[in-house]
Design a protein around this nucleic acid. Structure first.
Lengths: 149, 149
DNA sequence: CTTGATGCAAAGGATTTGCACAAAT
DNA sequence: ATTTGTGCAAATCCTTTGCATCAAG
């Protein structure tokens, strides 16, 4: 685990402590597993990665929900599945999600310019339609570069 | 059923015929039920509205999927539920979806200016990230005007 | 101790599927 | 007749929950 990752974990631990939530071994493993993934994961994916360490599926589900409520992970629903990603610095970071219908991968699109546009849209919607927006997600689906041809 | 609605139904029927899909009674009822709803519906909502007419839940699910594949309805996943709406003239019409976490309603936000912005974002993402985007949805959640106070 | 977290197995709930029957061509 | 669609019930799959046990303060 790199220094940057350790740093993030430390920050997440602080967030949780401030909310009276313990960073148990299982929770740390789940967070680290999410941190090293290059795509979004379902509860079952995490379970497959961690079951050898004796972590049960129910624990994964319970903690993903706990981490979601405490702002550590973001949930993305698409079709019948729910995917999770580390939110890290949620207030600063908006994600765009892309699901490739060919290979099934669910990934982030990182694009600073466009994130800025999306935040503007969100703010405008809030003002124009008399809403309080707590959360939002922009999900696209189609074919990724590899599957396109 | 108003004239405008009849017209839309006719157009949908044409689309389906062109794809070799029959407009059965059940399918027409599902489509009409979606057309008259002022919010997005789950399969179960449609079933509740149509079960007295002897339409089974499995038929609803099967046909929602069939209508989705044929471009007649759009599916919106949020948390554990999947909602459906009539797509009507999909290429011309982008929707923004809002779920109120207080009253649970899932609705469209109609806002022509912002839809234009979103389409631009979608096009830009396609070009900049080497993707083919077939579908996309912008889902927001929070509190609606009624629940806000 | 006391409280909260975990693993396992069972339950729950949304969605899908198998099958016999009905509808349409 | 043959094909396709439907209703019902059973099965499936993802997710949640109950409960006994474990870990931490």
């Amino acid at each position: 685990m790199g220094a940057e990752c350790k740093d993030k974990l430390k920050k997440i631990e602080d967030v949780l402590k401030g909310r009276g939530v313990k960073l148990t071994n299982q929770r740390r493993e789940i967070i680290e597993f999410l941190a090293q993934a290059d795509k979004h994961l379902r509860a079952e994916d995490i379970y497959d990665g961690l079951k050898d360490r004796g972590i049960g599926l129910a624990t994964i589900y319970r903690n993903l929900e706990l981490l979601r409520v405490n702002g550590v992970v973001t949930e993305i629903s698409h079709g019948k599945y729910r995917y999770y990603e580390l939110r890290m610095f949620s207030s600063k970071c908006t994600h765009i999600h892309f699901k490739c219908e060919s290979c099934g991968v669910m990934k982030d699109i990182v694009d600073k310019d466009i994130i800025f546009d999306i935040i503007k849209i969100k703010n405008e919607l809030e003002a124009r339609h008399d809403l309080t927006i707590d959360d939002y997600s922009f999900i696209l689906s189609g074919k990724c570069g590899d599957c396109k041809e």
